[in-house]
Each structure stands twice: as structure tokens, then as C-alpha cells.
Design a protein around this nucleic acid. Structure first.
Lengths: 232, 232
DNA sequence: TGTACATCAGTGAACGCGCGTTCACTGATGTAC
DNA sequence: TGTACATCAGTGAACGCGCGTTCACTGATGTAC
């Protein structure tokens, strides 16, 4: 979302400082968590007075929003990049690459992951700006899954589920069958559920080799999605 | 975990006040979230001076631990109670009842749910006391799944996954096959992943009838686990 | 190219608030004889 | 059953800290003519 280089020195300085504030805030979130992100502490780190930050972000919540948008974009881009590097016809590998990229990003940025996929921050209301970046990964997954030529699915959808999925299908994947989309949403749910379980410590003592466990699960999900190499 | 009625008035008062403090703290968590649970605010609500709380909980973190243990036990008991009310031979219904009970409890106590299944609280280290209550639900699920007489599973486990699952199996379900246990852990992961997705707002705009979607998923998982009525 | 005015960034002080934890203390409850 | 001492619950003050946000201000940068 980089705009072209701003003309005036003032505008350039503004863009740079905005980025610096976000960078420092991101560092604070990484070490202390989002709950006690503090404008004053960020300002202190930057050697400026706390009130000066208000020239850049009208409130603490706006700074948080910026971080959330950045986090969604970062993990989305990580997944897209990893996926794009795989041979286009190998759908299972593309799905795997995306899933693994999400997990890697989460491990490298656990607090940012918690910021977007963990508990909502009490008192914070996510504004509209966060919606689009949040859809990058699910859209990527749907794209991959949509390219599979799979036998008709035997899943039977209850009426209200079918209704919801038809609407969703029309929005994001016009040519996909509802059962297939159902599996896609479940896979997306499982992907994040699995990473959260690992990161939040719910499998400590049960699973040691979590990389192997994660890969196993993702391959299993991929199989269920009918993802294979489409090359003949 | 109720001990028999304490003898002395002092001990009785102590037990009561401990419970009251927890109750008020739980109420605070329910409205403000765990991150800014404050001993002083709890004391204020109880009409006592903040330092008095230290007679009951040596620190804020110990109070948090008590709340976490209580939350695990509450959701565990909810699941156990719901499951016990179903005809014993109907494994699919027992699984469904347990899953729905977890979801209901989560919806009624979203902040307590976030406390145990959401982001870890920065700076807080869960002590050993939380481990046992945390296993109630997974153990219940394993019990149900273990009663199914299902055809041999076609899942192929990579070696490290098999190793982990064998160890886990020996601890919690000696007679279960590894592939079946793998499916059980995945179902457990998906159950919580799905509730978190709903509660944390990740399917807003995609799924409207979340009850139907949840039931559908759980039934699908139950099918995959080979759960049916074992009555002939 | 130079000047007058408008815009903007950053300062420093202040408001009003909250927090966890410690400590010396009073007075009530419990226990041993 | 009564008394002496030990234990414990709760008080009130204090320590030392942090926070978000507002506001009047100075001085630098940008813009229109």
C-alpha cells in the first residue's frame, strides 16, 4: 500500500515518522503484547514527547488498528509469496506452502499473530479498514482449492448451511460447489485452530514434534479437499 | 473440589471470602477482560481495602490462576454433564452433546473462554495447577471416541507423528489405535478452532447461522471419527 | 525571486486517573494448659 | 471453665510507578501572489 514518493519535505518526514512510530509500536507489541501497548512508551522510545504522537495517530486505538492492518497484510503476503513459488499445477504443494507460511509467520511474530487471531482486545472495536486485509489468506486458499478438478462431493449440507455458503460462494468463488466451499472454510478454520493450539500451548505434553504434526494435518486436509497435482 | 465444611468460624469466613473474591473477579473479567483485572477494583467492589485481598491471594497472578482453574473446571463440567445425559450407546450424540455444551458455555462466558483458549496473558506463566483441569474435555472426548467400534483406519502417520501419538496413547487411551487418536486430536483442535472463529469474529459476513454451521461441522467430524449409535 | 500568511510538527505542563505491593498497626478469633 | 498467648484478618498510609488525552505555545515548512 505504498503511495508514490511524497513531494514536500514535510510530507516525506511525516510518512517516515508514521512508519517509525508503527515500527516501534510493533516492537513493543512483540515484547509486551497488545494489551499494554502505550503511546507514551512509544513516544519515549522515539525521543519525542508523548503528545507529539497525536499528530500521527489520533488515539491509541488508531495506532492499534494500523498494527492490525499491517499484521494481516504481512501474514497474507507471506502466504501469497510462498504459494507463488510453487509449481502452479501442484495444488497440494501450493496449499501446503501457504499453510506453512502462515505457521512460520506466526512463530516469528507470535504477539502479532495473537493480535489478529487471538482474543479480541477488550474495548477495541475493529473498524472497516481491517476487513479487506483479513480476507487475503482465505481468498488465497479458495483460489487454490477452486482450481482442483475433484469428483463431486458427497457432503450433504443442511438447508441453512447451504444458504450461507451459496451467498458466500457468489461473493468469492462463483464456480465452486457448496460442499467444496464448506470443506474450504473448515480447512481454513482448522489451519488457524491448529496454529493457535500450538502457539497458545494447548498441546504441550501431548505433541512434541509439532512441525510434523502440523504437516500431517495439512496434508490430510489437502487430501480431503481433493488437492493433487493436476499435471498429467 | 469442595472440602468438607471447615470447623472454625474463621476458616468458614475465609472460605466464603475467598469464593466472594473470585466471584467478583470473575465478574470483572466478564466485563473488562482478563488483561486489566485489578486487585484494587475487586477490593473496592467488596468494600474492603486493597491490601486485605493479599490475605487471600498472594498476588494478582494467583487470583488469575484461580480463575483459570475455575474456568477449565466449569467448561469441563458443562461438557461432562451434557454428555452424561445422552443415551450411552449413541456415541455420535454424546460427542455432539459435549461439543455443543462447550460452545454454549463459551457463548455464555466469552471472556472466560478467551482466558483459557485465547491469547496467553503477557507476563503470566500458567502454573502446574492448571494442567489437570485443562485435560477434562480432551479426556472426555477420548473416552467417547474410544468406545466406537470402527473399521481399521486408513490414515498413514509419518514416523515422528506416530511416535508422539504412541506416547500420548499410552497415557490416555491404551486401547486406541494411533490413527484414531490422531483424528481425535484433530477433532479437538477443530472444535476449539471453530468456537474461537465464531467468538472472535472471523466469520462475520461469511456465516450467518452459526449454530447450523457448528452442528454441521461437528457431525462431519463425528462421522470421520466413526461415531454412530452402537445399539443394534 | 521575494515576501506575507497559513499550515503544520513538536514542546512542556497539566488534568485526572489507576495500578501492585509493602508495612506497622489494631482488634478479633483460636488454642493450649 | 477460665486465662495467657499465638495466630490471623483487616486497616490506612505510603512508595513508586504508569497511563491517555488536552491545550496554549513556538518555530519551522509550504503556498499564493
Amino acid at each position: 500500500v505504498t503511495t508514490s514518493a511524497p513531494r514536500t519535505a514535510r510530507a516525506r518526514a511525516r510518512a517516515e515518522l508514521t512508519a517509525e512510530i508503527k515500527a516501534v509500536a510493533r516492537r513493543h507489541v512483540a515484547t509486551n503484547g497488545a494489551a499494554d501497548l502505550s503511546l507514551r512508551a512509544v513516544a519515549r522510545d522515539l525521543g519525542m514527547v508523548s503528545s507529539a504522537v497525536y499528530r500521527y495517530f489520533p488515539s491509541r486505538d488508531d495506532l492499534l488498528t494500523a498494527l492490525i492492518v499491517d499484521a494481516y497484510n504481512a501474514v497474507g503476503e507471506a502466504a501469497e509469496t510462498a504459494e507463488a513459488a510453487v509449481r502452479h499445477t501442484d495444488l497440494l504443494r501450493r496449499w501446503l506452502a501457504a499453510a506453512r507460511a502462515v505457521r512460520s509467520w506466526a512463530q516469528d511474530n507470535p504477539q502479532e499473530y495473537a493480535l489478529i487471531f487471538g482474543s479480541p482486545i477488550p474495548g477495541y472495536q475493529a473498524p472497516q479498514d481491517t476487513v479487506d486485509p483479513a480476507t487475503r489468506i482465505p481468498l488465497l486458499l479458495v483460489t487454490i482449492i477452486g482450481e482442483a478438478v475433484a469428483p463431486p462431493d458427497d457432503l450433504v449440507l443442511p438447508r441453512p448451511v447451504g444458504r450461507d455458503l451459496r451467498r458466500l460462494r457468489d461473493q468469492v468463488a462463483p464456480s465452486m460447489s457448496e460442499p467444496r466451499l464448506a470443506r474450504a472454510v473448515m480447512a481454513w478454520t482448522h489451519l488457524i485452530g491448529s496454529i493457535s493450539f500450538e502457539l497458545f500451548g494447548h498441546l504441550v505434553g501431548s505433541i512434541d514434534d509439532y512441525s510434523a504434526w502440523f504437516d500431517f494435518q495439512m496434508k490430510e486436509l489437502g487430501r480431503g479437499l481433493g488437492l493433487t497435482s493436476t499435471s498429467r
